[in-house]
Nucleic acid binder design. Sequence first.
DNA 1: CATGTGGTTAACAATTTGATAATATGGGAA
DNA 2: TTCCCATATTATCAAATTGTTAACCACATG
Lengths: 224, 224
Amino acid sequence: MSSVKKILIADDEPDILEIIQFNLQAEGYEVITAKNGDEAIDQAKRHLPDLIILDIMMPGKNGIDVCNILRMQPAFKEKLIVFLSALSDEGTEIRGLETGADDYITKPIRPKILISKVNALFRRLNKEGNNILQHGDLKIDREKYIINYQGNDIILARKEFELLALLASKPGKVFLRNEILNQVWGTEVIVGDRTIDVHIRKIRQKLDLDCITTVKGVGYKFEL
Amino acid sequence: MSSVKKILIADDEPDILEIIQFNLQAEGYEVITAKNGDEAIDQAKRHLPDLIILDIMMPGKNGIDVCNILRMQPAFKEKLIVFLSALSDEGTEIRGLETGADDYITKPIRPKILISKVNALFRRLNKEGNNILQHGDLKIDREKYIINYQGNDIILARKEFELLALLASKPGKVFLRNEILNQVWGTEVIVGDRTIDVHIRKIRQKLDLDCITTVKGVGYKFEL
DNA sequence: CATGTGGTTAACAATTTGATAATATGGGAA
DNA sequence: TTCCCATATTATCAAATTGTTAACCACATG
């Protein structure tokens, strides 16, 4: 299973904020809120949400402005952005879609439809074949062969990467030294026991983070 | 520019069919129509449209049925499918999205919004496999076999071009040497391993730009 | 036929990686 | 405490991988 998705909602009407937040949380999403455009940009940068729902009509920076600003930054080029607005104003709706939003939701909010749309967006995103493990601030992208911790890319050598990816594929599970050898080195190759330790060491060193626990006499496990 | 997109519209109400057809054609799309579900499936198979707009309420097979049937076939797994229905019936709307539709348009049709949505859908789709790849100052025109960097055309030989185009088709993704061989050279041909390196070298040389990263023991990736 | 281009390969250089040996550390049992 | 054992750490070296250059062949073109 992939990790919990973060959703940022920006709207100046507290009622709407609450309705959406409630429904999305009930669906298992992690929700962050913002009461205006500037706060939305702030929160977006801080939390790097997977989906951003922007009300178009907001005091100060409106939703379209926010979208434009965010889309300029690489971190938000590929994120999902959805607009929210009153059914009536057709003009802004069009501008919204042209700006590079991924969908459009009209008020009044119909919770079930909201949730369906959100689910559909994520489903579509996942189809794009993402191979990313995420646990907290740690992202392991098996396609890009990149580890990212708190926004910084960390480069691991092949064996190191594969070892970490294996352990992180089932957080909490203790992998026996044998399992590790089979999965990472294959059944053909025979290497000494210390070899694993050395690789574990290098991972721990490069990721300045205590995420691999030794279970003495058994093996290693990944956890935060 | 990429090729003209084909759109199939299925609705049992001739008026609506005509409105949509007129507007989309005015926007430069190629339009195919169907008056019911069976005809829609027929036309879809014949023309392989890029986008299918299905009215939910149709005599015989309804839109959801059609969607389900088409989605079963590999050729339509990745195509865009959009539902069309009266604003009122919330239940079917949800079922529609759960079925695997990409969006939802409510009647009455508002032409401008319809067009914006359609454009937005294609824009999103084009982010992936298009004929013109653009990343920063680098343009890769797969149709014309031309690379343009900061306004200057750069001439690459065919293999060089195809190799770069492949890597750039998924920025960040690491392509294994095997993948590269299969995609650029085909499965029949067998060439030595150094061949890839040499082509990579020539690309790096001609594009005075550090955009190809070596991932040792794994492959190469494109990124800025 | 001379010339140029594209594609492949061989040969060697440069670099990185991974395995091992040697040694240190730390927790638990006697 | 002292010993034992499993793991941690470090440095080192061999092997694997990639980079670079030049040479070669095929083929098209004038």
